[in-house]
Amino acid sequence: MTAQLESPAAPTTGEPERIRAAHPILSLLLNRAGWGVFSVLVVSVIVYASTLVLPGDAAQAILGQQATPERLEVLREQLGLDQSAWAGFVHWFTGIFRGDFGTSLSTRQPVTELLGPKLLNSAALVLVAAVVSTALGVALGALTASRRDGVLDHVLGIVALVASAMPEYIVGVFVVLFLAVDLHAFPAISVLAPGQHIWDEPSKMVLPVLTLTIVVVPYILRMCRGSVIEALDSDYAEVARLKGVGGRRLLYRHALPNALAPTVQVIGLSLIYLAGGIVLVETVFQFPGLGLALVDAITARDVPVIQALVLLLSTCYVVLNILADVAVLLVTPRRRLPR
């Protein structure tokens, strides 16, 4: 439905204009992708530089209490920590083009092998949390908007405010206290046996997903409620009402579709938040995903793993941003018109 949308108002003055007018999404994609690649590279360099500033190194982290000068020296040599920072970066950077992300300094496993299963676990977590929160947020937003100033609206408004004010690890702790410690309903931590994936033990996903959902839903709910209310107050809704359209039909057919654009943007932002929010939530639940791996890698000064994770997470961030913009274009036909 997107590409052929030919607006009668579109000026047809010249070829370039026509092309741009015909492919607003494509040009946006190309533009954003270019900047995205650039940003990811810049982030990599910055993060690599910051790992150099961290006190101590992987050898010291591995030996810990046992770090005698002799053993440190031997281990540093084994781990290749004796090469210069610049050489290390060039080695890493050229490696990624061959699909080689290096070897973890602490586990001595290839980084891809180490992070593969964790990536899948985190992806499952974010995906489920995103689907649940979006459905819940939009539904509750539309519901509260249609019953504006009712009891439900007020109660949910306050609950959402409180929930959005709480950091995710506090939410996590409360969720654990009620559902795991008190009711024994779900596991309190999500540690998996070696070789298992999180979907092999879905019960271990419940509390992390719930925590992320509690954190994200308020934003979607409030944005959706606001936009729907705005739409319901608009002239076209008034006209529809005067024509006898009412209740559900007005809400679903007229108001909601127009309220989607800002909501989609917030959903996009929430997803982006989720990609970072997993760090805290995974830590609380010891969830074997990328977030926990990042915390572990930083503590272990495991630079190849930190670099791979940052590359992965920042790429995620960029891609989600682009997707959110595209989605907004898709739900807002008028923005696809040339201005």
């Binding site: 101590g56 982290a61 591995i62 030996l63 810990g64 209490q65 046992q66 690890y169 506090i170 996590g172 702790v173 805290l280 830590t283 609380v284 915390v295 572990d296 930083i298 503590t299 272990a300």
Partner: peptide
């Protein structure tokens, strides 16, 4: 200290 692994997290979650 090699349990420094726990320290970030520990600091992180002191409040928790």
């Amino acid at each position: 200290m090699a349990g420094a692994v726990d320290l970030n997290r520990r600091k992180f979650l002191q409040i928790t």
